[in-house]
Amino acid sequence: MSASGLVMNLRAIWARAYVRVVGANRELSWLFFDTFLPLLGTSAYVFIYKAMKAPPEFTGFVILGGAMTAYWLNVLWNMASQFYWEKEQGQLQLFLISPTSPMVILLGMALGGMFMTTIRAGSILILGSLIFRVQFTVQQPLLLALLFFLALAALYGLGMLFASLFMLYGREAWHLSNLLQEPVYLLSGLYFPVRGLGFWVAAAASVIPLTLGLDGIRQLAFGGAGWGFLAPEYELALLAFLSIVFIYFARRALRFMEELAKREGRLTLRWQ
């Protein structure tokens, strides 16, 4: 890639991320809905554990799960389904006739989404921890930070792959994103330790980066709680592998789907 091409791509990444970063600051009312709303559901799960007289670390497990939910929702609705919304608003064709690569657009979307969602997830984590007095006993903070960032890389890599695969979809994109909520909450153990699903189900669910990321973060944030599925070091290695695989396949899928959409004339279809 030439220097001017690199500069152009970096500017495109920033431009696509900018919409989300600035959007997050200009329209602050979203903070109320995007923090308050998930906190309601998360609090309900905390009270279920209180009704069952569960050990106190389970409150922390739920709060962490509630915070990570924000990332999954962002991946589904603002990554996977994004090209559907863009198509509805007539933007998709503009992206594709611009001189940048669609991968660059996806990367900008992912970075902007991570920024916006981190504010949301951070707010849920802080508010939830304060309200329910969660006690964290963080072990190996560096490993914890690495695990978190690799979980995000793999998660948004999966989002980029979904965005490519969803490119041809009309309303199905909306329904598929809707469908991928509760089953993924279940399989990734957002509200209970994933080990509770049994080894083989948890192993299969590990293809969702949220599963390994959340399990590792819980182990390191609540040291010695004893509910881990795999050692955090193994989870880190698996997440690194998933990140590479998802981003590689996202690139290939995007090329393939773009070609297919062009041949079938579906890039500008609206109200499907």
Binding site: A54, L179, Q181, E182, Y185, P193
Partner: peptide, 22 residues
């Protein structure tokens, strides 16, 4: 299938929360 998976998955979250504790 779509109509079955969502409610069953939502219910199973509660089921596993319960089973893990008990």
């Amino acid at each position: 299938i779509y109509s079955i998976i969502k409610p069953v998955a939502a219910s199973l979250i509660l089921v596993f929360m319960y089973l893990v504790i008990t």
